[in-house]
Design a binder for these strands. Sequence first.
RNA 1: UGGGGCGUAGCCAAGUGGUAAGGCAGCGGGUUUUGAUCCCGCGAUCGCAGGUUCGAUCCCUGCCGCCCCAGCCA
Length: 565
Amino acid sequence: MSATDTAEPSTEIDAPSDFIREQIRADLADGTTRQVITRFPPEPNGYLHLGHALSICLNFGAAGEFGGFCNLRFDDTNPTKEEIEFIEAIQRDVTWLGFSWPGEPKFASDNFQQLYDWAEHLIIQGKAYIDDLSPEEIREYRGTLTEPGKPSPWRDRPTEENLDLFRRMKAGEFPDGARVLRAKIDMASGNINLRDPILYRILRATHPRTGDDWCIYPTYDFAHGQCDAIEGVTHSLCTLEFADHRPLYDWLIEQLPVPATPRQYEFAKLLISHTVLSKRRLTRLVTEGHVRGWDDPRMATLSGLRRRGVPAEALRSFVAKLSVSKNEGEVEMAMLEHAIRENLNQAAERRMAVLRPLKVVITNYPEGESETLEAINHPNDPEAGTRQVPFSREIWVERDDFMEDPPRKFFRLGPGREVRLRFAYFITCQDVIKDDAGEVVALHCTYDPATKGGDAPDGRKVKGTIHWVSAADALDAEVRLYNPLYTRADPGAEGDFVDDINPDSLEILTDCKLEPSLAEMAADAPVQFERTGYFIPDPDGTPDAPVYNRTVALRDSWAKAKGKG
RNA sequence: UGGGGCGUAGCCAAGUGGUAAGGCAGCGGGUUUUGAUCCCGCGAUCGCAGGUUCGAUCCCUGCCGCCCCAGCCA
């Protein structure tokens, strides 16, 4: 090395930066940390949702960026709530989001024996005791936010007696709730978590992994930090509500002969307007039948979003736009929708589909004939190529693209009006056919053969271009449109959130007409139905009876202008 | 009236002593065989009040507001 060496080039142009990553950078720089190890620690008592996506991207993302790794660790210390189904779904969702962990997933329950041994260690050190108080008494003795607690009469039990009792708790000699193991810290602390927190409780429930091996289980506080230490986690990232637990986290790490010294850092959880991101509420939506299941496309679960057609990449870019902070704000749903549209705009090929069909007969087009027209698959990406679209005398167009008495700036079909059929011809509406009830049932139009492909040789312009599907060649499909699940931006702000559920959140259209090439598209390929939105096939569909989910509608400045009156 | 955390445009968010990045939304304009995409333009006395300083969003003091904690949940 010489003085002429140039300075370190600044790489990582687009690398995210936030207070967590700054901390990691500093720890790496001063040698506090050699290799970054993080963990994503879900409790398997529900499905992962958008809020978890932030934590997943942070934990796996930051570790990866700095050459470390992130464990997937199930925080399974409460067998009364946890299930195998959730363990499997969570792994599926994390993988789908695009992340992987080294080896097998970790479980807090892998360490039950070690945690138990450490609990005995604490007892022997005189730092923990068995309390015989009932749950109600413990609450009373704990004091309140403004009044200090008072010591349990069992607080100064002899070490030998504590040890004996703890072993007998483990052996199953006492009923559930009869006794607990508590840390002996400070009953007068302003931080209630330090008022002799409970470390172990008696719980006779079959654990999804350890079965009936144990009848005592460690609490979150006793398990989390110690598992971090066992795994060599350097940066234990969690949400703000755990900041009050940090002194306890540190206290336990200090008291026990753990193999490492993990540090906890807290960040604000993600909140999004017009939706609900809490496991308790999501669980209610499922169990009370407000939605069709955990993967209902209206759910803010990762499974629901996946089924709805939201690409994992869009979720990652959404999270990247947010950054990580300690500010407890609420992100507007529009931000998520933007990330989805931005991603799908480049990822999805275009096709034509008529959702609410209206028959158009092209009266001057020869009966019984048809032809094939070339359509581009992606206007911004020539590489996506072209496809052939059949055209014939009878076609379907969108009902919304016709108005019998159109306002001034309506550029679509109306009596006597000429529009362009995308990739096809100019047509002019000559007659409006109605049934006895006065309902418009068909349009009679004429086409201009000279405008084939969509351009008029005489330079004539049309203001509107509409999509269409040849009636004889159309594929029938069901299309599910999703509207916001709630009627307000802050569901539950006044009363029960289920009362804010939008009764029209799911709209099923059963007579949709798709262009035939859609039959050839992959089942997991996102597609844009031109002028309508982004869609994805739903697993409920079959080749003969396809079903599509609308992921998100296209932006619609016409609807907006119209709405303003 | 205990402890912890947070306050920068409608929303998210950089900046941490030298005179306010960026994204979303909104509004206006341009391009366009999707009223899509794309492109251009427009918004802030940095919660309030004092103080230190040549100079403060950034330091100090005092207020105000919001969130979290009294599960043998995590």
